[in-house]
Design a protein around this nucleic acid. Structure first.
Lengths: 336, 336
DNA sequence: CCGAACAGGTTTTACGTATAACTTCTCCTG
DNA sequence: CAGGAGAAGTTATACGTAAAACCTGTTCGG
């Protein structure tokens, strides 16, 4: 530790161990088999330990030209869903010596700004969830390897995509409600221009369109419980016969519908069946417990990270959507 | 762009603009007043723009010896509370040209491992929430400037601390319930050895201890809705007279109590008053809406970041706890 | 009208690391 | 016993940036 307060460098370790800086790098980088003797190696490790040496990552990154760090762009951290995605991505990343930096897009799930200004980590790649096209173009312009989560495979400018099979989830919801006898539907949709929500609308309309005598109205809401209350209250008070089932784009919206229904004097599920999508902890905290579509967030994150690793290594990413499953609970019943 | 596919460097920009690399650095670093002519500066900026130049952060960090990046260690991202902390910290950071990297401690709110292994960003400082002593010691050993959130001011090894006035929140809860006439209390406590939870227990016991004829039982639960259901069911089925009010360490636990109460055939608030702490969106999604203590997460994050900036600049951080406020809703009523 | 001040740059260097290329010595094999 | 093959290192270099130190020509005050 030559000079007072600065952190020790590999050169300080070398001096303490009586070897060259190169030897330190070899030993600590585990590339010393047949290049340095076991006794010398141990001496180096000992010196590093007593000095409390930790390599300067900026220098290492500069030298290697890569950082083993990837950015995970998520719309929000207000539910545990993206926490799960992060957890899954991190697990796979750690197995390959990578780190994951989170960038919650400040504008929520909508148009994300270019995240690099604020995430000043040097990056090897990006996993992005539900990004707006302009931000996507910005990232692509950076030539960074990119994996898109839940995005239009056709419109992703050649980036790899990893998707949940949301379409199948919505089909299962529709099937379930139809088989209970429902015919008048309200779709409470997220007020966001994002492919994953377009899929919900499209698939629901498609499935219900095959059944004669079915009606489908749509209302839009910001993705929050409070926002959904307002939107659902307005929609339920609308003209014409009241819907008997509300299909929500996510669980938070469904929780809002519960509240709107209570205020309107309606009982779930007797007067109104409600379904969600996500299967958050919230879904079983509300009464009655919510019929919803379970998404495997961690698996989603794992697949996303594996896809990015594949891209980084020039391999083709695994294909195929991630299956989802309907969880039937107490919020759906036959209409009266 | 001399060689094929690599990203352009400042040297490439210099060549394109017909100046030296130093000039590029001066212009783009905004240090060119009186050193480079306006026309040359514009030429450099133009070249940088057309080449799509973005500085290599690893090189910059190495050169400057700092990264303008700080690590925010949080126990979990499963609720919006720490998302708010992050948002607040990021806002202040951005005003000072800093970035914030999130590190959700994998073990939850308990003993955090040393976060540097996985967060491979080079860091200028750390803001850590509810860390275990060993991880704290590890970070201190790294000589990194450190700010602790909601931690024992005495036991933080000299690190600056920023705290919410949880003690006052608990006092307000106790006051509220006492004034409603409650005398038999259950404290549903988080199953975690962390200062912020010790404060809750201590303060509640202290306040109730001043009122004769009051009983206080304590049950412990992991911090999750499901965990709380089990813990609360057991506690409510326990021997002796049933408590009339349950004080929970956070809103998630309160949601679990609702569920346990339903299963036991008890009505909130008629048979059982319940209070939470956090004021999550969840608090108004459940029925009846939860009486709880509102914490200003964003302000918490802002204060944390400001404190770290102060430490980095050698100034003394702002002192004083952040006020909290009781929000009375429908989950508390006089006992029958 | 001389030198100082200044504008407008350029040359050079250092940051700490990883590794390619080189050196030296010893041992073994044909 | 020549010489090739390891073992056990060392020396030198490059990564891209920021900035200190240096250079050259012009202007202007005294």
């Amino acid at each position: 530790m030559a000079r007072g307060s600065t952190r020790p460098t590999s050169r300080d370790v070398a001096q303490a161990a009586g070897v060259s800086q190169a030897a330190v790098s070899l030993v600590l980088g585990d590339k010393w088999r047949g290049r340095v003797s076991e006794t010398t190696a141990e001496r180096v490790r000992e010196a590093a330990r007593t000095l409390g040496y930790r390599p300067n990552l900026a220098a290492r990154n500069l030298r290697l030209g890569r950082t083993r760090t990837v950015l995970l762009v998520v719309p929000a951290l207000t539910t545990e869903f993206f926490a799960g995605v992060y957890t899954g991505a991190t697990r796979v990343a750690a197995e390959h010596g990578f780190g994951v930096v989170l960038y919650p897009s400040p504008e929520g799930i909508g148009p994300a700004r270019n995240p690099f200004a604020s995430a000043q980590a040097a990056l090897d790649g990006v996993i992005a969830s539900s990004m707006a096209a302009d931000a996507l173009t910005a990232i692509r312009g950076d030539q960074l390897p990119l994996v898109m989560l839940d995005s239009d495979p056709e419109g992703s400018l050649g980036a790899a995509t990893v998707n949940l099979d949301i379409a199948d989830g919505i089909r299962q919801v529709a099937e379930h409600l139809l088989s209970l006898g429902h015919r008048r539907f309200l779709h409470l949709a997220a007020d966001v221009a994002s492919w994953t929500f377009e899929v919900r609308a499209r698939e629901l309309a498609a499935r219900l369109g095959t059944v004669p005598g079915t009606t489908l109205r749509t209302a839009h809401s910001p993705i929050s419980i409070e926002g959904a209350v307002t939107a659902a209250e307005a929609a339920l008070a609308g003209p014409g016969p009241r819907p008997t089932a509300v299909v929500c784009d996510d669980d938070q919206l469904a929780a809002g519908v519960y509240k709107a229904a209570r205020r309107a004097g309606l009982r779930v599920p007797d007067d109104l069946s409600v379904t969600g999508l996500d299967d958050l902890a919230l879904a079983t905290a509300i009464d009655p417990e919510l019929t919803t579509v379970r998404l495997d967030a961690e698996r989603f994150g794992e697949r996303g990270m594996r896809a990015l690793l594949a891209v980084l290594e020039g391999r083709a990413p695994e294909s195929g959507d991630i299956p989802v499953s309907l969880v039937v609970r107490g919020s759906t019943a036959p209409p009266r």
